[in-house]
Design a protein around this nucleic acid. Structure first.
Lengths: 343, 343
DNA sequence: ACGAAAAATGCAATCGATTGTATTGTGTTT
DNA sequence: AAACACAATACAATCGATTGCATTTTTCGT
């Protein structure tokens, strides 16, 4: 194994100073074109690679952006990460990625690791049970930007990127009502999280506007997994009379619930019209295909990363953009579409 | 914003040397317990965080492991990453993650970035069109371990982690034949990649053992997306007589194909029995549920990460473990199960 | 209480790139 | 040919933690 080449080795070989080599390699205007060319050529020949540790130490920045997500193995998050990676990579930054596995404890320890590894910025979608901001305070104190996406946390110094969950939930519930639903069950997630509480509020608002009384016994809160969906189906089937509509806060859970309902002979959409949220791949595979809200993770990832990069490059004021609301769209499929002639 | 605290600040405050502080912080045996406690306490009070740049520079290691995958937004890869992250994180390493987007070009540029960022090791699942090892050579030259998983590349210095694709494909094809299939179509991916060529070979071998003549016109090679599956369905429907079995090299494509076939009135499994590969979430949602090969990405990720960590910690010989074959299992569902009484 | 061994701490070089300032070199003007 | 401007390059300090070796302090046996 060869010894690593440094700028000093290059300098020695060319009989010039290391300072000039350093400047030459990064295209500094104070180095003549001829010398530059020679330096680059020699560096190449000698198999030089810049030592980022030394450079980072001196420059006090790492060109690394940290990302903390609840889980890596979720379709939505994978999309988001793909979007982030694309932007970050195009700007010569690198990504540190870790998952909180939905607990604040791990989220905090991840944040600490990111801090010690001196990320230049942090992108976060918070865990299911995060209630405190303490683990992010050290970043704020040091002026390291923290940006929240999707599952956001309110903090004056942290921009947020999300969709209008309230409106989307309102629209989709409204749609169910228009299809003739009068008794609509809502399956939601932890109300601590904006995404789930807003979806719940949107649902309530739609009921209200349509003069349907809100009934708390029609609300089921769980962890929105497929299994939880199947369990919820059990609860639904016990309701008397049966509900005629169902709005679930995510597709995975909606699909799990649909499968269980179908097994019990429930006809969708005629007995119960169903709508989900997220436009998961399974939504188009289930029969009937699931009405849902589409919001592209890839775009959200790109938006979050771009905001971060712009801040890091221009040092523009982060507080100027406090919120960034991305577009979402209602996708109506057969799971909620009733034959108008029957009504 | 406060100035960052260094070991010198701590040393000054305690009237001891920076060397002792450094040793005290990392629990070096040559520092007395009393001093250690004092150092840690003071560091804590002063809000000290270690400067990883300086430490890395001196120690010539980064405690970072790089991962290059074809795509982040695939269910399987997300599982793998979750597994990797878990192990790596438990061992105080961090993850650099990037995606090649299935092109060797981006894979090479990612590898270069990883090299310059001085990862301590590299985990790779190669892109669709990777034909050369050149971009990994610099790692080998520097003794930086490179481990391939799932989509592996043959190289004497690089351990590989994968499942027995050949056997799994053989078994699943065999299963189709046992269900009475005589004319089985295979939809496969780029034959450059071990995973797809081995699945193809396993399919051929099963035909051979069952004295069914291999027919190249029954083989469709595409990029295994859902859309490609739908297209393939078109080709299948043109075959005369229709095939009675279908083995697809991944579930996403199989599901896309099934949906298209069903739309044309094909009955699955009675007209055509179908089997996929991967046990994607959609496999249990499609109707009828899809027979497939289950291999857990999470486990594969853990295995790859553990091998890497063990090497990095113990500097044990990497070449000892050249291949690590993980278990996979055939999951038989209704898409391939024919009523025995009918046969 | 003395010397030797053991324990605790300090010294100073090192890792490699960056950058403010100083110096050298080149060319132009008159 | 002297004087000056300006381009090109060199010098040397700096970033903060680590570690081999030297030095000081403590412990303990006799």
């Amino acid at each position: 194994m060869q010894k690593e080449i440094t700028i000093y080795d290059i300098a020695a070989k060319l009989n010039i100073s290391a300072a000039t080599v350093s400047r030459g390699l990064k295209d500094h205007p104070r180095v003549s074109k001829a010398t530059k060319k020679l330096i680059v050529k020699t560096a190449d020949e000698m198999g030089y690679r810049s030592n980022s540790f030394a450079s980072n130490l001196r420059k006090k920045q790492s060109n690394v952006i940290g990302v903390i997500v609840p889980r890596l193995n979720s379709n939505f998050m994978a999309d988001v990460l793909a979007g982030i990676e694309k932007v970050v990579n195009n700007n010569n930054y690198n990504l540190f990625i870790s998952q909180s596995l939905e607990t604040m404890k791990k989220e905090a320890s991840n944040a600490k690791a990111m801090l010690n590894n001196r990320v230049d910025g942090l992108l976060v979608s918070v865990a299911y049970d995060t209630t405190s901001f303490d683990h992010f305070e050290p970043f704020i104190k040091r002026n390291i930007p923290v940006i929240f996406f999707d599952r956001v946390f309110d903090h004056a110094m942290c921009p947020q990127i999300y969709i209008d969950n309230y409106k989307a939930a309102f629209d989709i519930t409204n749609h169910l009502i228009k299809q003739g639903c009068k008794k609509i069950v809502h399956i939601g997630g932890n109300q601590l999280r904006n995404v789930y509480s807003e979806r719940f509020q949107g649902y309530k608002k739609a009921l209200e506007e349509n003069h349907i009384e809100f009934d708390n016994s029609l609300v089921i809160i769980n962890d929105l997994t497929s299994e939880a969906g199947a369990e919820a189906a059990g609860e639904i089937l016990k309701m008397d009379p049966l509900p005629d509509g169902l709005f679930v806060a995510n597709d995975i859970c909606a699909v799990g619930c649909m499968q269980a309902l179908k097994k019990e002979g429930i006809n969708i959409p005629d007995d119960i019209a169903v709508a989900g949220f997220n436009n998961d791949p399974t939504a188009t595979v289930i029969e009937p295909p699931l009405t849902t809200v589409n919001y592209k993770g890839h775009e959200m990832g790109e938006a979050a990363a771009k905001l971060m990069i712009n801040y890091l490059l221009d040092k523009q004021d982060l507080q100027q953009t406090h919120g960034l609301i991305l577009r979402s769209e209602l996708i109506i499929r057969e799971s909620s579409l009733r034959d108008k002639s029957k009504q």
